[in-house]
């Protein structure tokens, strides 16, 4: 067992974990943060994407021990009092159907906009290529990221 200290969605956590425990399983099974789902075992689908120290990462491709000392934000902590503009835009643009890819897609989109506040359609599509969605055909996801970009630029004025 290894001792880790991680801040998850604003709450400091300390735990003893088996080295082989994946971060996503620690979040889901030990912390009960089941909002972050698992969709594959080859790091292709991106459903499990979370923020680690402000940057997106696939929590199925990381050991919990590797997250020691970091700050993690899951979909359950993405709203800070009020919804993040990406969440607002996803609802408004109907950018989700079954919702299984949504936690990872929202986190990936937040990361994308934090690095490129005004992305082109091509940049959005490239930037989300690590997150698979089987329901929406991505059309409305792209639209939502564009709308979120506008919302965030408005808010920054």
């Amino acid at each position: 067992m290894a001792r880790i200290a991680v801040t998850v969605d604003g709450t400091a956590r300390e735990a003893d974990v088996e080295p082989r425990t994946l971060l996503v399983h620690w979040l889901r099974d030990d912390l009960g943060l089941v909002g972050t789902p698992v969709g594959c075992d080859t790091s292709n689908c991106g459903s499990c994407t979370v923020m680690i120290d402000g940057r997106s990462a696939k929590s199925c491709s990381l050991l919990a021990v590797q997250a020691d000392g970091t700050q993690i934000t899951t979909i359950q902590g993405a709203a800070n009092g009020e919804w993040h503009p990406v969440q607002v835009a996803f609802k408004d643009c109907h950018a989700l159907q079954c919702g299984y890819c949504t936690p990872g897609m929202v986190v990936a989109a937040i990361d994308l906009l934090s690095e490129n506040p005004d992305p082109s359609e091509a940049e959005i599509r490239e930037g989300l290529r690590g997150n698979l969605c089987r329901c929406t055909g991505y059309h409305n996801i792209v639209k939502a990221v564009q709308q979120a970009s506008e919302l965030m630029k408005e808010a920054a004025k």
Binding site: S43, G46, T49, I52, R55, S56, A57, K58, S61, L62, A108, D111, L112, G127, R129, G130, N131
Partner: peptide, 9 residues
């Protein structure tokens, strides 16, 4: 290479 999340790690 890969995708943005993987490139972070």
């Amino acid at each position: 290479v890969a995708d943005p999340a993987i490139r972070h790690r």
